[in-house]
């Protein structure tokens, strides 16, 4: 990387001041209302703002905002595939690239894609691929670029919804929309669509059911296209969590449909480009 030699460089290692903040003794209490007034143990997802077609250069694009989580997605293609060595020429390729802006998280990130971003990219790809009619795009690739502008929890879930909207906006043939929903299990209770504070709340040591779960769901086909969990959960909790997330996805569905149809009708009414 080119560096400015005239400039006084900062120290090689630096730490975020947030590390020195005195942590409250027991974090957020597992009972009582959530910090933003939503209810626990309910499919109480944050209100979502969604728009399509905001980037004029891209074939399709979408923006989603849930609480302070803000994501932007652009879809380019279908265009001729870059990797010629790929053996399967009957099917198209869907590539995903998810990145966090360096300022999107409480701690500054790097511009270089880290392993967490690669992990998110893979999960996004696996969640979207079942919904896209890739056999309609032989020898071509469709690129999905996701940028996290602000991370305030449930990033992957909203990224999935946003990317499927951008794909639809780009006119890519799909079997169904893909909707995402996250959940944070905290002992016996859970919070749907957690904020980042709730995601990082580790709770008391002894409690066994501690984990996060993200589900990608195809609502009209009733299929799960992506599932990802970590932490510690019993099988019953996991099963219940998946059901809750599906419910959360259905809550998003009418809004997403409405946004898409408005986007399409606006495009239909617009004067044809000269």
């Amino acid at each position: 990387m080119p560096t400015d030699t005239k400039r006084v460089r900062g120290p090689d290692v630096s730490q975020s001041p947030s590390l020195f903040v005195c942590q409250p003794a027991d974090g957020v209490s597992p009972q009582g209302p959530r910090a933003d007034g939503r209810r626990r143990d309910q499919v109480d997802v944050r209100p979502v703002f969604v728009r399509c077609g905001l980037v004029s250069q891209a074939k399709g694009s979408a923006y989603i905002e849930a609480g302070n989580t803000k994501l932007m997605c652009c879809v380019y293609g279908p265009r001729e595939t870059e990797r010629k060595d790929e053996t399967d020429m009957k099917c198209g390729r869907l590539t995903t690239d998810m990145r966090f802006a360096p300022f999107s998280c409480p701690e500054r990130g790097s511009w270089i894609q880290g392993s967490q971003e690669k992990d998110f990219s893979t999960m996004l790809q696996e969640s979207l691929q079942p919904a896209v009619c890739l056999h309609k795009y032989p020898r071509s690739q469709i690129e999905v670029n996701m940028m996290v502008l602000e991370n305030s929890g449930s990033v992957l879930a909203h990224a999935i919804t946003c990317a499927s909207l951008a794909l639809a906006d780009a006119g890519i043939e799909m079997y169904d929309l893909v909707l995402g929903c996250s959940l944070r299990q905290n002992g016996a209770s859970y919070v749907a669509d957690p904020t980042s504070a709730e995601e990082n709340d580790r709770g008391p040591d002894q409690s066994r059911n501690q984990g996060s779960l993200t589900v990608a769901f195809l609502p009209s086909l009733n299929q799960i296209s992506g599932l990802q969990s970590d932490g510690e959960m019993s099988e019953d909790t996991l099963t219940a969590g998946v059901r809750t997330c599906i419910e959360g996805c259905y809550k998003l569905y009418p809004l997403v449909q409405q946004v898409l149809s408005r986007c399409v009708s606006r495009a239909a009414c617009a004067p044809p480009p000269r």
Binding site: M123, G211, M233, E235, T239
Partner: peptide, 25 residues
């Protein structure tokens, strides 16, 4: 003890919820 610490769907296809529940079991 039967605690699940990580799950992940891999591969290009999707699964219906019932088969996911059967598979986790």
């Amino acid at each position: 003890k039967g605690t699940v610490t990580c799950t992940r769907k891999v591969g290009g296809g999707s699964l219906d919820p019932e088969s996911i529940f059967e598979m986790t079991e």
